[in-house]
Write a protein that binds this DNA or RNA. Structure first.
Lengths: 191, 191
DNA sequence: ATGCCACTTGACTGATCGGTCAATTATTTA
DNA sequence: TAAATAATTGACCGATCAGTCAAGTGGCAT
């Protein structure tokens, strides 16, 4: 009937893929959760894969926009806001883990289109963290340093921390990892 | 005919699951790669899931035994040997990523039995790294410190590093992360 | 009002999935 | 050697999967 239908499909697809992985995502579940019939879905998307790729790209871009880019657009205390975000458990779902890491792990070596999409998303993630560090350097919260590598290590350690909590089922593991990581970043603070 | 059949199934299952995930693992592929017929497989295992769990437990236990426990059983230079292992690209398959992380990401929140199995394996991984650090402390390569947390951070940062390389397709990302991690661990060295 | 087009409906298809089973062959035990 | 058990074979099953399609609906432009 409207654009509404497409958005409901995107939302339901994202949830289903986040919960069960791409390969475990059942079209029937997506359709019933979205309240959309099959033929209608194939009016908007050529197949399951394209719909999933759209859902991932759109929903995750949205997520990054509100989370990391918002910090960089702020006015100072970049590290403080970044660390606050890391420590905020409400931003995390440790049962399901990180949506980006899940898809990378599951699909990067299986499908070329997923590989390409996730490469872009992961690069964007690293880039947005690097921008935060660059801002921090520019206002002398950090010493001048290789912010590209620092962002690489930060993002990957963060992904690892989320994985650790998902594996153990204990969010304290995430917090412990994050404190180590913050300690590492703090060592680059301007003295 | 013999125990041989079971082992071929275990090996083929591990490879198939490592390559395509559990949900993407096709019984038909496993059987043809193992050169075993379907009925024969169901003589050794009750179903696909149990066979996969067996394969994961047996193959990964084997992996840890030869890799990390061997270092702890050595006689000194624990950190050096550990770091050498981390830097050795021959030990890694960045296309497929870490077998443990893959399954944790895919299955921990989907199936209780997988969750339990992966919890144990991940805990064993952390424990075996902790033992290396404890040894390092005992011979004064490291200052006395919270080796449990250090092992937690080390393992999770390592998983993150492998993921980063899998996402970008660039093993240099792994090496860069590992150098940061080693730098962090080195800061606990006895001075 | 008429024709057009975006959108919806849901039954249907063929392929593939994991799993079953009865019959057969090999191996061990007595 | 005979009986029992272990292992193998491959046809078969029902369920589920993504994807197709012809028919229908409703709004909008002419």
């Amino acid at each position: 009937m409207e654009q509404n239908t497409r958005q409901r499909l995107i939302d339901a697809t994202y949830e289903e893929v986040y919960s069960h992985g791409y390969q475990g995502a059942a079209l029937a579940n997506i359709l019933s959760n979205a309240g959309v019939h099959k033929g209608s879905m194939y009016h908007f998307f050529p197949n399951k894969k394209e719909m999933a790729l759209c859902a991932i790209k759109e929903k995750i871009a949205e997520r990054f926009g509100t989370r990391y880019l918002a910090i960089a657009r702020g006015d100072g205390d970049y590290l403080k806001h970044f660390f606050e975000g890391l420590r905020d458990l409400n931003q995390r779902d440790f049962r399901r883990g990180c949506p980006v890491a899940n898809i990378v792990q599951e699909m990067s070596n299986i499908d070329e289109d997923f590989n390409t999409a996730m490469k872009e998303i992961y690069a964007k993630f690293r880039q947005s963290v690097k921008i935060i560090f660059d801002k921090a350097v520019s206002v002398r919260e950090l010493q001048p340093c290789d912010t590209t590598k620092l962002a690489l290590f930060t993002t990957s350690a963060l992904e690892g921390a989320i994985l650790a909590a998902k594996a153990s089922g204990d969010s304290q593991d995430y917090l412990d990892c994050v404190e180590c990581l913050i300690g590492y970043i703090e060592s680059f603070r301007k003295k």
